[in-house]
Write a protein that binds this DNA or RNA. Structure first.
Lengths: 337, 337
DNA sequence: GTGAAAGCGCTAACAT
DNA sequence: ATGTTAGCGCTTTCAC
């Protein structure tokens, strides 16, 4: 069933059929109805390849993340897919891993596939040194980043103010008289830097303990978080709270605490399912994927509409501290109150 | 840069260029080299839409799951994407949700997009009554299901023997003298049925307590699992172990136990990150996505190669019990040993 | 082994 | 408002 068949069955030309297909207003209501009816009757769907050839677009958006099996990225992909689909856009997914060469490969691959735009999920796509490979792509098609920042033409960034979120968490701990706050993190991606900066700003602001062993970089595993926390705890170092750049690390820290029967405030980041499942349930900073993702898709839609003026190159939302047991549970200042 | 440019720069016809593009053997090694060199030099990539038009295929596989933000589905998508990409196949992703009408819509959408095949992830795609919508699609393109079973021509199923896995878990508990094993589940999808059947078979085999209140259907939430466990515990009903169809539910049950200082063996299902993060860490049954997914892609590749004879319509792998603290921790038979 | 030419199914001038 | 026609960039007969 092609456009020719429909045209024939309606006794119109293929141009007219094409017009109703593309919603042109240069078709009389009468013929439009006739054509629509025929399409319906024959269950006609235009061939997407032919359409792509003509329009040089298949209304397909490339989504890239380093790893969809990570809960944070998966949630973002889920939200983005949902909103793109609502707008009739298709989603082609790529999981790059962390190798720069692979990220480049995927970017090029998507470009070669003529996707209409690329959405980069998470800050691992911002390299520390050189992002020229991304800039190069952005010259050809628009790029949206979610939770990362790249100040490059034709790249639109939607992110959460993680620095502020982290700083607020420190603030709350400081007000509970926590002076020695351990910070666990695993990477200095853009997001990682922001969080660390927030921690440091908070420490500075409240003049808390700045000792360097209170900042620990570890692998992104439960075991590593548990081990370092155990080590510090057992070494007799003073600790009054633990904050992590990732729920997983916070859960690891909690395990070390539980094993020793110690109760301290613990704060994670991402507000993932892990935070709810942990015992005690984990206070966590939510980076608002639920608002970042729809915002990103809205911007993307504007760009695809050619409405560049309406598309902000940088959109920042506040983060949200979600309090759970790992916070209220503990009263380091109980005795004094 | 089109095939014409390459042809011109090599002083051959576009037919020849097309031949080397498609790996035809009807090209002399000499000209092939020449063409390849030109392609390389000009960084030529064939236009995928034009290619699609000619071949009626863009080497694109549709992956459907109800929800990628679910850890189990996300892991499957991740594994499948990786293997498909290795074979030069692209991935278009759809998250359908649980509404039948939406599942149908996505299936039809993918068909209309002329994907080369569809991979259905998880058993929610098998409806209880009527799967004719899937059969209809399967008449047009091959369908692979991961962890579900549909006995239909042109549908290839790769799954894990979850019944046996569950039964083995019950067996181990029985050998530890657990007589009253609570079973928590949330759905009777195909997978859900298998697990329940495994539980019942185990109970039967070891002649354990069959009381109906030991089988509880609840919503798939932490809270529901915690609440029902708490209720049973507080009602004074005898419980000697808890088994769940999903790690999340098992974690909920563990929360109820922890809150009461009770220690019982708990077994989850899926062996997700939740199992590791839970305290005590959760014994869980692994349904081997790490082997199911590569196997599924291998079968898919055979089909796409036209090698239907090599493609089994049903492939079953054994499941794997992964023991953690929630098992060894407890000694219900301690006093007797 | 290579080239000429006819599609593939659609879009978009351009003409009427 | 509608029809005619020339592409879009590739694949694939069919000749040579």
């Amino acid at each position: 069933m092609t456009i020719y068949d429909i045209a024939k069955s309606c006794a119109v030309s293929i141009a007219t059929v094409s017009r109703v297909l593309n919603g042109s207003n240069k078709v009389s209501p009468k013929t439009r109805e006739k054509v629509l009816a025929a399409m319906n009757e024959h269950n006609y769907k235009p061939n997407p390849f032919a359409r792509g050839l003509g329009l040089n677009s298949m209304k397909m958006i490339g989504i890239l993340c380093t790893d969809v099996s990570d809960a944070f990225f998966a949630k973002a992909v889920s939200l983005v897919e949902h909103d793109l689909r609502k707008r009739g856009l298709d989603v082609i997914l790529g999981c790059t891993g962390n190798e720069l060469s692979d990220k480049k490969k995927y970017l090029q691959l998507f470009l070669d596939k003529h996707v209409d735009a690329i959405i980069l999920i998470g800050s691992p796509f911002r390299e520390e040194q050189d992002n020229s490979h991304i800039e190069k792509i952005a010259k050809q098609i628009p790029i949206i980043t979610i939770n990362s920042l790249l100040d490059v033409p034709n790249i639109y960034c939607v992110l959460c103010n993680e620095k502020e979120g982290m700083q607020k968490a420190i603030e709350l701990l400081a007000k509970r008289n926590c002076n020695d706050i351990l910070y666990l993190y695993d990477s200095l991606s853009y997001s990682g830097q922001q969080k660390l900066a927030g921690y440091k700003a908070g420490i500075q602001q409240y003049n808390l303990n700045k000792t360097s062993h209170l900042i620990q970089k570890i692998p992104r595993t439960l075991e590593a978080a548990e081990a370092i926390t155990a080590k510090l705890l057992d070494s007799g170092i003073e600790l009054s709270a633990i904050v992590a750049s990732e729920d997983l690390l916070a859960v690891g820290a909690q395990k070390a605490l539980s094993a020793r029967g110690i109760i301290l405030p613990v704060v994670g980041f991402n507000n993932s399912i892990l935070a709810e499942c942990s015992t005690p349930s984990l206070t966590s900073i939510d980076n608002r994927l639920d608002v970042l993702c729809p915002a990103a898709v809205t911007i993307l839609a504007q760009i695809l509409n050619g409405d560049f003026a309406a598309a902000p190159s940088k959109t920042v939302f506040p983060s949200l501290l979600v309090e759970r047991e790992s916070f209220s549970h503990n009263k380091p200042n109980k005795k004094r109150s």
